[in-house]
Design a binder for these strands. Structure first.
Ligand SMILES: [Mn+2]
Ligand SMILES: [Mn+2]
Ligand SMILES: [Mn+2]
Ligand SMILES: [Mn+2]
Lengths: 219, 219
DNA sequence: ATCAATATTTAGGTTGTGCTAAATAATTTT
DNA sequence: AAAATTATTTAGCACAACCTAAATATTGAT
């Protein structure tokens, strides 16, 4: 089915909200995520229900159908592949690619995305460490945990970020943390969850909030 | 100014029609090119006039303003750079790229197109031999002529196509003609303008229509 | 259980981009 | 020059995607 950019953006938003909560997605949550009004979200949700991309029960929220989930995954796939292109080939910084990928993801061409994937060497993860769904919708999951879950003296490699806002990514740069960086917990403050960590050879102080947005793979 | 895909497509169409005729563009011509109805073209033309991208006189047609021409050239620039990407990097065939570039050209990001141009090695021409406008709107013109203008025993290198429909490009493939192919006129029929030409080492027969859609650079 | 607060939907309006049918202007033919 | 033909515009409708304000349903507190 050929969807409009707006429809695709809504589907993606619903998918991500479903993932984050494992429950139906409410109109308010969706409107907030889409930066629109609840009444606009209701309108769109009705259209998507009409197209059988989601189940909608008035006042009860929304869940994607199989079709809807499949569509959402394909858009995410395109978004992430384009992000890889922007960083690996055009040398964009990892905090600059989201906005452009938001547009590129809506270009309709199966052939294009197949060839792009090939050209990029069939990457498994995007520049933020997020997995790239395959053409059939499969996602490669890795055993990652939040840095905040590690105990003192445990260490690992940074494999992703939970939030990927430019602000956070730029902050990580300042701290010399990026995908692939080795991190070890030197100390953890019980009071506020803050940590002293080893980044490469240097010590660094990070807040609980930061530790809760960094994924690491333990060694 | 941030324009919608539809507005951008209209601007491009008007630019091309102006180039082809050196006179004002009529509503009917525009509607035909855009594959829409004259009434729709009138609507759009009014909006673009409002934005001062073109001059519009009722019943008299339309001409682009300087602003409008600048915008059109930037869209054409993006279209052609993306076409180079699709052919050179993703190995699309030259007859498959127009449709996808029609979408990619509407992605808004100065930075993206600057980096893409760099990545592609700052090409001067697209896969159909058409010049790529520079960032400031300059077009590199070459001394090319239509194959149809050549006399017997004159020869040259194919440097472009006037029409770039998939049908025509596929036909050229069958004839083993592409950008860079050496061609020599062995004979020209006065009656219907058809030609016998030398393509590489082989003889080939082409119609006047074909000869009028092939650009060559004489040696 | 009732009421207040919150969430959601509906009603009705706006803008962009298309359409058809009818009106009007321009051009060509006679 | 008038009539016929063609080109163009206008009027009015439709749909997607937004909005605000008002109505209604759900939830949480008393
Ligand atoms: Mn998007
Ligand atoms: Mn990402
Ligand atoms: Mn286009
Ligand atoms: Mn071209």
């Amino acid at each position: 089915m050929k969807l409009s950019p707006s429809e695709e953006n809504y589907l993606k938003a619903i998918y991500h909200l479903e993932q984050a909560s494992d429950t139906g997605v409410t109109t308010n949550a969706l409107a907030q995520r889409m930066e629109t009004k609840p009444s606009s979200a209701t309108d769109m949700v009705k259209r998507l229900a009409e197209k059988e991309l989601l189940h909608y029960v008035r006042y009860r929220g929304v869940t994607l159908t199989n079709e809807g989930t499949k569509s959402a995954l394909q858009i995410i796939r395109k978004h992430r592949l384009w992000q890889v292109f922007l960083v690996e080939k055009l040398h964009f910084h990892w905090d600059q690619v989201a906005e452009i990928a938001e547009q590129l993801e809506h270009v309709h061409s199966e052939e294009l995305i197949a060839r792009l994937e090939r050209f990029l060497g069939e990457p498994d993860f995007d520049p933020h460490g997020e997995p790239i769904p395959s053409k059939d919708g499969t996602i490669k999951q890795t055993a990652k945990k939040l840095l905040a879950e590690l105990k003192k003296n445990q260490g690992g490699v940074c494999v992703g970020v939970k939030e990927s806002s430019p602000e956070f990514l730029q902050y990580l740069d300042k701290k010399n943390i990026t995908i692939g960086t080795k991190i070890k917990v030197l100390g953890k403050e019980f009071f506020d969850g803050s940590m002293v960590i080893l980044v490469g050879k240097d010590q660094s102080f990070i807040s609980k909030k930061t530790a809760e947005n960094l994924y690491v793979q333990t060694l």
